[in-house]
Amino acid sequence: MNGIFRFLGETVLQIFEKLGRGSYFLVLMLGGVPEVLKRPGLLIAQVYSVGVLTVALITISGLFVGMVLGLQGYTILSDFGAEQTLGVMVAASLVRELGPVVSALLFAGRAGSALTAEIGLMKATEQLSGMEMMAVDPVKRIVAPRFFAGMLSMPLLAAVFSMIGVLGGHGVGVGMLGVDDGAFWSQMQASLDVREDILNGIIKSVVFGFVVTWIAVFEGYDCLATSEGVSRATTRTVVHSAFAVLALDFLLTALMFGDF
C-alpha cells in the first residue's frame, strides 16, 4: 500500500519536474527568435524538412478522409432526404475537427518523431555538446528554427488537409453519387462562417502545431544520450502529442463552440 502511494507521489513529482524543464526550455527557445529572424535560411531549411516533406502524406490522407466523409454522409443524409446538405457535413467536420486534429496527429507521426530522433541523435553523438564548445548555442541554432518551422507549417498543412478533404467529398458526393453541385457548395457556404468555423479551425491548428513541435523538440533535447534513450523519446513524442492534441481539442472545442 505504501509502495503505491510512493509510486504515485514520485510519478506526479516527475511530471511536474518535466513540465518545469519543458517550460524553461520554451523560454530558451523564444530567446532564439532574433537569431531566426536574422538568418531566415535556417528557417527555410527546416520548413522544408518539417513542412514540405509532410505535404504528400497530408494530401493523400485528406483526400481519403474527405471521400469517406462523402460516402458515409451520403448514406446517412439520404435517409432523411437531406443529401443536399452533404457539403455542409463534409466541410464542417473537416474544417472544425478533422482538419486540425488528424493533420496534427499525422504531423506528430511524420515530422514530430523525425524532429525528436534528429535532435536526440545529435545529442547522443555529442553534436550539441560540440556546438556548445564552439561557442554556438544549440538551442538557438538547432532547436529554435525547427520549433518555429513546425509552428508555421502546421496551420498550412491543416488548411491543405481540409481543402483536399472538401474536394474529395465533392468528388464522391457530386461526381459519383449525384448530389447537386450548386446545392453542395451553396449549402456549405450558407452554413459555414469565416470567423466561427474557419478561423477557429486555424486557431486550433496553430495551438496543435505549437504543442506538438514543442513536445517533439523538447523530448529530443531532453532524452538520454543513448540509442535506447532516443528511440524511447521518439515513442514518447508520438504518444504525448496524440494525448495533448486530443485533450486540447476537447478543451478548445468547448471554449469555441460550447456555451460555457
Partner: peptide, 8 residues
C-alpha cells in the same frame, strides 16, 4: 570529442 561530433 571522442567520436568527432561532426554535424551530420
Amino acid at each position: 570529442f571522442q567520436n568527432g561530433a561532426l554535424l551530420t
